[in-house]
Design a protein around this nucleic acid. Structure first.
Lengths: 343, 343
DNA sequence: TTGTAGGCGTTATCAG
DNA sequence: CTGATAACGCCTACAA
């Protein structure tokens, strides 16, 4: 093919101008004559020139690298995020560097900072639950690093966050279950140290109250968002003398655990018990019966986050409008829920 | 904290030597006096100095970036790979850049080359099915780029590949099903244009033959590795007048489809029909009944691939021993298979 | 509107 | 064994 990658010098020589002028064209500076502009543009095309990111970065102290920080067991979620981010960032000349980490580690902040520093990452997108860390956010801000958090609660400047309105989604879930006639509903939460868990619970409970119903504490069970914890909670719930007619679980993994326990106990879903989850992960549509759940527009959220971060990095429009930080999840009704048949 | 990141100059000045000598120490060159060595080492520690990757890259034309190229719908697989790779590469100072692509696109090669070129990726790990592309491999080799393919068939120099012995795994699967008394087994393959599909089929069939049994063409159905294609195949298989007593599906997604169809037709698994899959993805353990399947040591494979690639990049030991390119998957027995009850 | 010169932090060449 | 000095490819004051 070619001998070597062409440099800015090759372009300059070929076009009969100086590096500086070529540089101006590359970076879209206004102060270039129409003709020279066109000329250089054509030479660039002909030589198939593209600026060297490393050299560029060394000079301007940027890397054209975006980081993705997460500690999330849901691989499907991560995958959707990665694709969403890449869709936006690769077009803009950025690459995506992944960085799984440990949310509960006391070296979290240090670890993430190291990651950013070592590779001069231009900006990071932080996924839940890491995105809920106050310490990390504070450190990022303090060190003047660009970041966008993806979260379920509005806990930062709208410039630095993209949130899915899970309160609203849970309101929808509550209305749906009630409309199916369910009055006696058990709720398996995620870890109560997560904002997302509290938010979902609050959204559900307040809607129930609006409908003149209640979600007593005795019907709330804390889970850990894991399959096993779903099983544990389900056992406790279903072994009570009066069973609820419906169970909501904070994620699909736990809902799958509920289904398993119900199956083992010979309880038919959805005839005798309705079950709903949250996430719409791979499981949800494959499991039998398929799961009624909440789907978040994960890819869209990620793409939005990528846009915000690039905007921030390039400071072209530091003020992002308020309108583009909130996305709406929605209810997906499948086979695991049905009208309440209890007298 | 600090004012700015210390540079090699700071270290040199502080230690009273020249940049060059510091550079030697950093890169572990032998030609440095014992004392100067120690001295510089200590200064580096004290200043918490670490070399700037961009500058380093610019000078040595390396980026300390590893690429991950894939077009695989199984997010769990991707996630395991990423973690496996990172475990190795982050310790060695490399970061991981992800690059999903389209295997069937006619611009695949171009796209991947562009990715590598644009960011001066030092080496790439290619996942199936992209890893099966002859064109891509040829282009990579021709352009002298470091790469390691992860695959199920030994189709490259052992330096450039890590393969999981799926033929052996399928032999195990065949022996297991036969040992359970199954003689009439249906086989849903993956796309027959994939080596992996052919390999699994061949491993299964040849073992059956060794056991004096056969897998007639009439029992082989081509699927697309998707849930829907599993459903389609299962419908064809289960609507025949004489049903097989067991069905193997080329992956768990399709096996889930089989389970779904069986459920809808009122066929009990595993009492009336045994079902097995391949992958051990998230579904396998969650679905009811949980799935007998094959688990590959994906993380280990990925880690191995990372090691090989770094070794190749740093050319410290260009010849990797033959022994470390093969990994062994193994059978996981769960609830979806049982002894054959047919007369 | 365009060009000159110096710098970003390393590595590499070649003397001493 | 060590040290000036020139790349590496691009950006950016500062001039012209």
């Amino acid at each position: 093919m070619s001998d070597k990658k062409p440099t800015i010098n090759d372009v300059a020589r070929e076009a009969g101008v100086s590096k500086r002028t070529v540089s101006r064209v590359i970076n879209g500076s206004a102060n270039v004559g129409e003709k020279t502009q066109k000329l250089i543009q054509s030479v660039i095309e002909r030589l198939d020139y593209s600026p060297d990111k490393q050299a560029r970065g060394l000079a301007s102290s940027r890397s054209y690298l975006l980081g993705l920080i997460y500690d999330n067991p849901d691989a499907l979620y991560i995958d959707q995020v990665q694709r969403g981010v890449l869709e936006v960032c690769s077009k803009q000349g950025y690459e995506l560097v992944v960085h799984p980490c440990q949310y509960s580690s006391d070296k979290l902040v240090e670890d993430c900072q190291g990651f950013i520093r070592r590779s001069k990452i231009d900006g990071v997108i932080v996924l839940p639950p890491v995105s809920e860390s106050k310490q990390l956010a504070a450190a990022l801000r303090e060190n003047n690093q660009c970041y966008v958090r993806m979260a379920s609660v509005d806990l930062d400047d709208h410039m630095n966050i993209v949130v899915s309105d899970e309160r609203a989604a849970m309101a929808e879930m509550a209305r749906y279950l009630v409309s199916m006639g369910h009055r006696d509903i058990a709720f398996i939460t995620g870890p109560l140290s997560y904002y997302s868990s509290l938010e979902r619970l609050a959204g559900f409970r307040s809607t129930l109250q609006q409908l003149g119903l209640a979600l007593p504490e005795s019907q709330v069970f804390e889970g850990q968002n894991s399959y096993q914890s779903g099983i544990d909670a389900a056992k406790r719930i279903l072994s009570k003398t009066t069973r609820p007619t419906a169970i909501f679980a904070n994620n699909d993994e736990m809902a799958a655990g509920v289904l398993k326990v119900a199956h083992n106990m010979g309880i038919n879903v959805p005839e005798q018990l309705s079950v709903a989850g949250f996430d719409d992960n791979l499981l949800a549509s494959r499991i039998i019966p398929s799961l009624t759940t909440i789907q978040r527009p994960v890819g869209a959220m990620a793409a939005l986050a990528a846009q915000k971060i690039i905007r921030a990095i390039e400071k072209s429009d530091p003020v992002s409008s308020e309108s583009d930080f909130l996305v709406k999840p929605h209810l997906i009704i499948r086979e695991s829920t049905a009208p309440c048949t209890k007298s």
